[in-house]
Amino acid sequence: MGLKKQLGLGIMSAVLGLTLIGGGTYAYFSSSKTTNNTFAAGTLDLAVEPTTIIDVDGLKPDDSVIRDFELQNSGSLDIAKVLLETNYSVIDAEGNNTDDFGKHIQVEFLYNADKLDEVIYETTLADLKEMTPEAVNESVFLPAFGEKGLEAGSSDDLVVKFNFLDNGEDQNQFQGDSLKLEWKFNAQQAAGKEQ
């Protein structure tokens, strides 16, 4: 074996020895703890009771129908906004309609069963259908629920009055017609906060 190989093996042996010695000299105390943490999401659960708010027939111009329903927050999170989408379809019995039946059905949102004369908001079904859900929230639900919205585990009664408007003109085109109304209620949570 040559001198260079012997020298190389000697240096490598020295480095290996120093590494083993150095590694053994760094002894220290230690301690550790483990924590168990949980993140659980809340629930947003809006219910409407009853699910059929109105089902009447035999209406004539100038008739009114009052119905109440309950919005329930069955979830664990507060509901800040209730957004209402309105849609309806008219079944024209005679095929002679020249006007939208929804323009002749007035909707009055009232405060509650004890204050039936206090109107929160008044419009026609046709106009309500064209409103954005955000605008309905600001006009109807914000005044009804207040700034707090619908708190978790709570409910609120709403009263609606439907009026078949008598416009003083011939409304024969609506005889036998029916209007199928769909209200879709969408709940939005309150803003997040530091827990």
Rank of each mutant, 00 (worst) to 15 (best):
Q171A: 09
N186R: 15
E151Y: 03
Y111G: 03
Q189M: 05
Q173P: 06
G23L: 12
V159N: 07
V119Y: 02
N97W: 04
F141E: 03
V48P: 01
S139I: 05
D78L: 01
T132R: 08
V65C: 13
M131K: 15
D92G: 01
V119M: 03
K4E: 15
A47Q: 08
G22E: 07
F141Y: 14
L128E: 12
L125V: 07
S154H: 03
F39M: 04
T43P: 01
P133Y: 11
N163K: 14
S89W: 01
L9E: 01
K4W: 10
F109N: 02
N37A: 02
G149L: 00
K103V: 05
D117A: 00
G153L: 09
V140K: 03
S155A: 07
L142T: 12
D157C: 12
L116V: 07
E182G: 08
D100I: 05
Q188M: 03
E118V: 02
A152R: 03
D156G: 09
Y121D: 08
I21K: 12
T25G: 05
S74V: 08
Q171C: 13
I53T: 08
N87K: 13
L181N: 10
V119S: 03
K4C: 15
S74D: 15
L165H: 03
A126K: 13
L3T: 14
G2I: 03
V107D: 02
N167P: 01
K33S: 12
P61S: 11
Y111N: 10
A113M: 02
E130G: 06
G153D: 00
T34M: 04
S154V: 05
Y111E: 10
L18A: 11
L142S: 11
T38R: 13
V90A: 06
L116T: 05
I79S: 11
K184C: 10
E122F: 00
L71M: 10
E108M: 13
T52D: 10
D99F: 07
K180R: 10
T124A: 14
K193A: 02
E147I: 06
Y28K: 06
L128Y: 01
Q173W: 08
K5I: 13
S89Q: 02
L142A: 13
N87M: 10
L83C: 11
V90H: 09
I120H: 04
D100Q: 04
S139Q: 06
Q173S: 10
